[in-house]
Design a protein around this nucleic acid. Structure first.
Lengths: 262, 262
DNA sequence: GTGCTTCGTTAACAGTGTTAACTCGATCGA
DNA sequence: TCGATCGAGTTAACACTGTTAACGAAGCAC
């Protein structure tokens, strides 16, 4: 009891730093369009490939590690962008965060594939569990919860849900903090899932380029998808609606400036 | 003039058969959970790997070939299912086809990734062009067109569209037959794109398992997404709506029976 | 039959993940 | 402080991958 959290010894700090370098180097490789390989990562770190086995069990573990950390770093990026708007304006923050997510995905398609399109093999429970703590999911759903606290938008009652879904929202296996949601309000989780499916869909379509490049540049598809979600999230008033659309447009304009011309 | 279409010589037939075997064998490999490799394909065909270079330029070409053909075969599958409903009932056919698409994606996640999540590199025009003739896209959009012919559901006027989008729908780079759509009706293509994004999103989420398995089994997320699209497609009447939902439920029930228990 | 083309072979190279055996240095207990 | 221990890293090797080059053996055309 009263344990001091064990001051990290020198070796532990070194080890932690190595882990950090692994994911940083991996991110570099992905950004350069190369593909992630143990040997490439090791080489760029000035090591030989087998040395990496001191840090990851196998290649898949490397991928998982990098995916998890990239998700974390990307989320920090979005959160920072979102903080341009005040804490008591979660809807603005959510809008900005979604745009930042999309921007990140399109700028780093390989990283996106790694984190969000990396097929989860049948029942490898480790990877499932890793998914349920994904930083990005928790961040976005938390923002959505804050929106709900303000607008109290409607969500389906538990008894209106498909029984299986009811069970799923009561004991969710998704990356979201749900412990603070009252049991009778768990229908809210269904909104989490549905809205995530919507933005995930467009972003995946755009990031993998399975979409007209001009449509991607314009951002119109993404915008339309987000705008459709305003009423269900309790944004009814014309004024508030237009305020958010303005924020959205502003973010999308930033993208067009940032990306190179085709 | 009056050319007989050059009767396929023996060699040509042989070659065609070899191509067929390549994609069949590739499909087998993917279905078994193995990953697509030149050597594995060649071995299973009783050949050595370099021999495949007589048929494909390199590995990426193999992937593209297999992706294109799998898409074609899968589409034929969906179309066959859809034909259980009469030709003058395109909405029923579309519903069934979407369910068949989802069923196929979840049953063959690797094939799905190959065809629909395979990132198309920056501006390799060949692959872009291949995408614009994808059989599945043409089939589904054609069904959607038939629905429009019946219900005349509304679509945005050209001048209401983002200028870039307007250009995109007038000269579309998407897998859809658009030549028969009157120029002033090209706003319809925007519906093509948006509805495709919606179903693609859910199916991608489910096929890559980035989703609660129970939600996948229940089919509720997919159902909700499709149901949301009924009104925009001109399905307003309660009767017609319930008829289609019944069809939808029936298809989803089939899935639950077909898949193994978790 | 003589050429030419096409299909397939073997051999080899560079790259991948992965394991085993080994070295060197830091850390810790006596 | 000495000696044991553990941990990070090495090299060598194996079984894979895509890919090229050089070669052989069929089929087809004249």
């Amino acid at each position: 009891m009263g344990h001091i959290p064990a001051p990290p010894t020198r070796r532990e700090r070194q080890r932690e730093a190595t882990y950090d370098e692994i994911v940083t180097v991996s991110a570099e490789l992905l950004a350069e369009g190369a593909d992630l390989s143990l040997r490439a990562v090791a080489a760029r770190m000035g090591m030989t490939a087998p040395a990496l086995y001191r840090y990851v069990a196998d290649y898949q573990a490397l991928v998982d590690l990098v995916a998890y950390e990239l998700d974390k770093r990307a989320t920090a990026e979005w959160a920072k962008e979102a903080e341009r708007y005040p804490e008591d304006d979660p809807m603005a923050r959510l809008t900005v965060a979604c745009c930042a997510f999309r921007r990140w995905a399109i700028a780093n398609p390989r990283a996106f594939s790694l984190v969000f399109a990396n097929p989860v093999a049948s029942h490898v429970t480790d990877r499932r569990e890793a998914l349920t703590v994904a930083t990005s999911g928790c961040y976005l759903t938390d923002l959505l919860y804050q929106v709900w606290e303000k607008t109290k938008f409607p969500f389906p009652a538990l008894e209106d849900l498909d029984p299986v879904v009811r069970e799923a929202v009561q004991d969710p296996w998704i990356p979201a903090e749900t412990s603070h949601i009252a049991p009778e309000d768990r229908g809210l989780v269904w909104i989490y899932i549905r809205s995530w499916a919507a933005v995930y869909g467009v972003v995946a379509l755009e990031a993998t380029m399975h979409c007209d490049p001009r449509v991607i540049r314009s951002g119109a598809l993404f915008k339309a998808t987000l705008v459709d979600w305003l009423p269900p999230l309790g944004i009814d008033g014309r004024q508030e609606r237009e305020r958010l659309i303005a924020i959205l447009d502003e973010e999308l304009a930033r993208d067009r400036d940032a990306w190179p011309a085709p």
